[in-house]
Design a binder for these strands. Sequence first.
DNA 1: CCGAATTTCCAGGAATTCCTGAACTTAAGA
DNA 2: TCTTAAGTTCAGGAATTCCTGGAAATTCGG
Lengths: 196, 196
Amino acid sequence: MALSPLTEAFTLHFGEMGSRWGINRTVGQIYALLYLSDRALPADEIADELRFSRSNVSMGLKELQSWRLVRLQHLPGDRREHFSTLGDIWQIVRTLAEERRRREIDPTLTVLRELIMEPAETDSDRHAQLRLREMHDLIELLMRWSEDVQKLDTADLIKLLKLGGRVVALLGLKNRMPLIGKGERHNTTSAAEQDA
Amino acid sequence: MALSPLTEAFTLHFGEMGSRWGINRTVGQIYALLYLSDRALPADEIADELRFSRSNVSMGLKELQSWRLVRLQHLPGDRREHFSTLGDIWQIVRTLAEERRRREIDPTLTVLRELIMEPAETDSDRHAQLRLREMHDLIELLMRWSEDVQKLDTADLIKLLKLGGRVVALLGLKNRMPLIGKGERHNTTSAAEQDA
DNA sequence: CCGAATTTCCAGGAATTCCTGAACTTAAGA
DNA sequence: TCTTAAGTTCAGGAATTCCTGGAAATTCGG
């Protein structure tokens, strides 16, 4: 079976985008194909449609499963394994966020904490540690926010997102205190530390 | 001059992380070095410390400048160009978000729109278009949120982030209250959203 | 302008990542 | 248990990306 022009265009674009985000092009294309498909597909069919070797597809699917982005199912009367993406796109986002966090963000935070704890020998190192702390606090803040809003059910999450920055005005959070001294300048570390 | 162990550890980790996000390892290391440095550095010094060729550093800096993540300055009495990162880490986040959007998100949205407009020949294509619309609406919602909260000044943005999902309860959004003071309607996520 | 310092460009070798075919393993069904 | 379709693994060739040295271009002080 040949790919429809629609599916082909999307898989190509998605593969291209994937490779810009550190995802192997063919893995991206496999995911794109499954994402658009209205049924679970067996590996040999994927290989056929995308013109990849069977083994390449096997490796790609393993990778996608390790990200929990693709799941395996058995169809009655067919011995082959069939693969599909998560049906709910919000669940896809949640899964992606969790996995990226687990694999990349948390280890990075650990490294940052270790380096910040290290006794500094020089002024230069002390400055570097300030920068590291800024980065650490920023990432931690963003991750806490992300973790927190992911607990919302999807409808509420959508409402929150649609509200955007208006939340600040609605809740009267706007900082009305006169800017003292530093004008527009915001020191990240202290700003991130102060309680809202 | 040799790299301090602190700086070396960070540049190595950052380069490694960068390569997982589609950024060339050496470009990541150059950025990391500049990020930690307490002064602007000339290219030859960067090449020295990281043990890269002068030309590699030149290409890396060009790349970083094209992302507006590194800026060039001239120091009095020195003919060489000196480079530094943005001082405010929140500005770094804003710049990154803008550039990624411009380079990757917007073109993707364009492709998605084109494919959704295409007349569908088959049921399979019709299903694919529903999936494409879900993705389009989701990305658009996230981008609008991001663009919107970036207009806040940093102190307010931090407050909003710290608040996390509690916004929903505080504003009573759970009870189907209409959004206060809303003229324009965001027509995003029509496919992805289920209004509770 | 001249000349030296600095930066940029680029061809091609180095390094890395990707992909395949073939051999091997597994397990379902007869 | 045997047969065979299906799945996995992996060595090594293909493709891509990276990096360097040398040469050209640019810039600035004199």
